[in-house]
Design a binder for these strands. Structure first.
Length: 782
DNA sequence: TCACCTGGTGTTTTT
DNA sequence: CACCAGGTGA
């Protein structure tokens, strides 16, 4: 048997060796689809005599592309130059860079790529130009409306509105596009849309690529949008298309992905070879059963019979935490204990629905001194100081980029304000110069400019710098150019303001310098393109620490141990989907959960918190409805389910935490927490340094009603509808011994009246200090 | 022009 | 709570 097919199962072999023509591989999670893709490409090259450059493979992330290339090179043991592997965006950017000059009017090959921030600025500009109130209509919403349109291959002149906001979006879209052209810029969506446009307008270019790519392979097909489908259609001709996907893992509808592309594919490419990969090589039976139970609840899906040979395994552990801080501590303790089972932090991933949840987790890791890696959140290239530096490079590369110039012309401060900037701009406009060119002209002939006095002096000294860099930019390696700029503008002095934050920012700049160092001889345009297209998910490598990431970013990854935190209604499923009239939104939340679960190889932990901090307030939450769909026998849970929770409340506290109780639980309680001015009795907690209890600037003298007191869950308080009686006397006092059904016994540290309730702080022997509302907590005096 | 304040607003998820 | 845009005074 061919070496390439060794160790593959029957279906995988069928996929790898599938005949020419359209092929659909429906691949369940963990079914080895990456393996199939890499072996397929290797098979084409080795057995079918296809040259590497005749193959185009499209992946979802840059990282996946890199891995795929390396794996194929590993299999074939040769350098596969010419093999085109990349994301849609990277592939299109590459094609456009080469063809745009001759084949797409309005752009030169030096076009820049606008990220979401740049897009927002451009949208705001467009709205200003059109006299549309940016307060009344959120530019972000307008931006996403435009993005949706572009994802569906609707060009500005094709945009049809069916309501008032749509009409606005249409107008803004048209103006926005003009602005981009003026700036020689494309946004992410343009990379795709303009490629299709170019292929349509210049069929010979499309034909050229058709002749080159005899085999096109697309991964994660369920998350392609209409425009991407258009690209494939243009490229495919009579060539061979091989797609891999799983409708159950479609989680990007919100950004224009269209699962119906699978249907379209079946229509446009009749009688495809269809292969189902159902054997899971990743997870234990229990984890897989849990995942199946979740996904089965979705309507209108094609049933798949996933199975694994990894029998049994540990039960899925589900736990409730008192609040988000305790939830984080539970994760930490669990990770510490997992060492006993030989799992290192690097084997663990913590997944959450929203980036905002990462903060509390991160702080817990820092406290515990456990190494971790945060994926996303404040993305590296999104940091202000990094964006500033990139803006310098961008405006040097593309003098038309007004937004970048505007960003940096007064950073660091050089007394160049809006007025001066606009004068420069208008001067350029009158003479047909791009903003960067206007700077060069100013440096050459300052006396011709309409500026004078202080403004001229300030601007001129910047223009001289700009000209210097501009002349040198192609004559020195990137790092040297960067160093020169940093030196000339004294960026250190600007950032290093003596604070830790300043230091961190400078460190980031140095980190960025390393990137340019690695880029070595790379020309500026290519460098800018690469950093524009990197994604958070590209940084998930390495196993020095636990990985913190969103469920979206977890797609395509796997870990021995997975924690899914924040399993609460409103978070997962997200509140936006709960209130939505479109049932697809809820279905997508469910798929997201499914994706998370199926990342786990050996162990799976889930948690939810009774209350958590959100928008600076303390919110009470209900466990996620999804939890009810996991059969009880798969779950090791203190609260088996909502149904039997009341019964389970009797269990001992020690069973309650993942670890069996333990160290530093007192960290878990939250002081301050949005409720106002506290009595001095609890000040000792502040000393422990809960940074959320930082003294507030404004202290209100009166005590507002405690709007945010934890609300009781219905089954704990049958008469919940009755308003709480106004209390006037303390029923608990410092030193009282009390007992709590959940936390066991403890001693009252302090107690005080809040608007309509009594707030008791208790030190429990097992779980540490808790702050409780007397009306709810059912504290028993001993 | 800039430093400082204030009030409004927002957290889904990302190439 | 945290971030921004926009306003104000120096």
């Amino acid at each position: 048997m061919n070496q390439l097919l060794l160790g593959l199962n029957e279906q995988q072999v069928a996929a790898v060796t599938a005949p020419d023509g359209p092929v659909i591989v429906l691949a369940g999670p963990g079914s080895g689809k990456t393996r199939v893709l890499t072996h397929r490409i290797a098979w084409l090259i080795e057995e079918k005599g296809i040259r590497p450059w005749q193959i185009l493979a499209v992946t979802f992330t840059n990282k996946a592309a890199k891995e795929m290339r390396e794996r194929i090179e590993g299999i074939l043991g040769e350098d596969l130059r010419g093999l085109q592997v990349g994301t849609f965006h990277a592939t299109c950017a590459r094609i456009l860079r080469r063809e745009v000059a001759e084949n797409l009017p309005n752009f030169t090959r030096d076009f820049v790529i606008f990220d979401v921030d740049d897009q927002k600025s451009a949208v705001e500009q467009a709205m200003k130009d059109l006299n549309i109130d940016t307060k009344k209509f959120n530019p972000s919403n307008m931006r996403s409306g435009i993005s949706q349109a572009k994802s569906a291959l609707i060009r500005p002149d094709e945009y049809e509105a069916n309501n008032y906001v749509g009409e606005l979006i249409g107008r803004i879209y048209r103006r926005y596009q003009e602005i981009l052209i003026a700036n020689n810029a494309m946004d992410f969506d343009d990379l795709l849309m303009n490629t299709v446009t170019m292929f349509e307008q210049s069929p010979h270019v499309a034909l050229n690529y058709q002749q080159r790519f005899q085999h096109i392979l697309v991964d994660e097909f369920q998350d392609t949008n209409l425009t991407q489908y258009g690209i494939i259609s243009q490229l495919i001709g009579d060539n061979n298309i091989f797609i891999v996907g799983d409708a159950d893992q479609s989680i990007y509808k919100w950004r224009g992905a269209d699962v119906r592309n699978l249907m379209r594919f079946r229509q446009d490419f009749p009688n495809p070879t269809e292969i189902l990969l159902e054997q899971n090589y990743r997870s234990t039976q229990i984890i897989l059963d849990g995942a199946k139970a979740i996904i089965q609840q979705n309507p209108n899906r094609v049933h798949k019979d996933l199975f694994t040979t990894r029998e049994d395994g540990n039960q899925i552990i589900v736990r409730e935490a008192y609040n988000d801080l305790e939830e984080a501590d539970m994760v930490i303790t669990a990770i510490q204990n997992l060492r006993l089972d030989s799992y290192l932090p690097g084997d663990c991933a913590i997944m959450y629905r929203t980036n905002a949840q990462s903060r509390v987790m991160e702080e817990a890791f820092v406290r515990a001194g456990i190494p971790y890696r945060l994926v996303g959140a404040t993305r590296f290239y999104g940091r202000r100081e990094i964006k500033d530096i990139i803006a310098y490079l961008r405006v040097l590369h593309n003098p038309a980029d007004e937004f970048s110039l505007k960003r940096i012309i007064n950073v660091p401060r050089r007394s160049i304000g809006d007025k001066t900037f606009n004068q420069l701009r208008d001067w350029g406009l009158r003479n047909g110069w791009q903003p960067g060119e206007a700077l060069l002209e100013l440096a050459a002939q300052p006396e011709q400019s309409p500026l004078s006095g202080r403004a001229l002096k300030a601007l001129l000294s910047f223009a001289m710098l700009y000209r210097k860099w501009f002349d040198l930019k192609d004559q020195m390696p990137l790092v040297e150019l960067l160093d020169l700029i940093l030196e000339d503008i004294n960026f250190t002095g600007y950032l290093n303001d003596g604070t830790q934050e300043g230091q961190d920012r400078w460190d980031n700049v140095m980190e960025f310098r390393n990137v340019t160092l690695l880029a070595a001889e790379m020309p500026l345009d290519q460098f800018l393109e690469e950093i524009a297209l990197v994604a958070d998910a590209d940084f998930t490598d390495g196993n020095e620490g636990a990985t913190l990431l969103t469920l979206h970013a977890a797609k395509g990854l796997e870990y021995p141990v997975v924690f899914i935190v924040g399993l609460e209604d409103g978070l997962l499923p997200h509140s936006r989907s709960i209130g939505s009239s479109d049932p697809e939104e809820m279905a997508e939340e469910r798929r997201l959960f499914y994706v998370g679960i199926t990342r786990a190889q050996d162990r799976l932990y889930m948690s939810y918190a009774f209350q958590r901090m959100a928008w600076g307030r303390l919110e009470t939450s209900t466990p996620s409805r999804f939890l009810n769909d996991i059969p009880e026998h798969l779950v090791d849970s203190r609260f088996q389910s909502n149904r039997s929770r009341r019964q389970a409340t009797k269990a001992r506290v020690s069973e309650w935490s993942w670890s069996g109780g333990g160290s530093s639980r007192s960290r878990v309680s939250r002081s301050g927490g949005g409720r106002s001015s506290r009595s001095s009795g609890s000040s000792w907690q502040r000393a422990k340094g809960d940074d959320r209890s930082r003294p507030k600037k404004r202290v209100t003298a009166s005590v507002p009603p405690p709007k945010n007191l934890p609300k009781p869950r219905a089954e704990e308080m049958p008469e919940a509808l009755e308003p709480l009686a106004r209390k006037s006397e303390l029923s608990f006092h410092t030193g009282d011994k009390v007992h709590h059904v959940k936390f066991g016994s403890g001693i009252v540290m302090s107690s005080k009246l809040t608007g309509s309730d009594e707030e008791v702080t208790v030190a429990f022997s097992d779980v540490g200090v808790k702050r409780l509302a007397a009306s709810i907590a059912k504290l028993e005096k001993l």
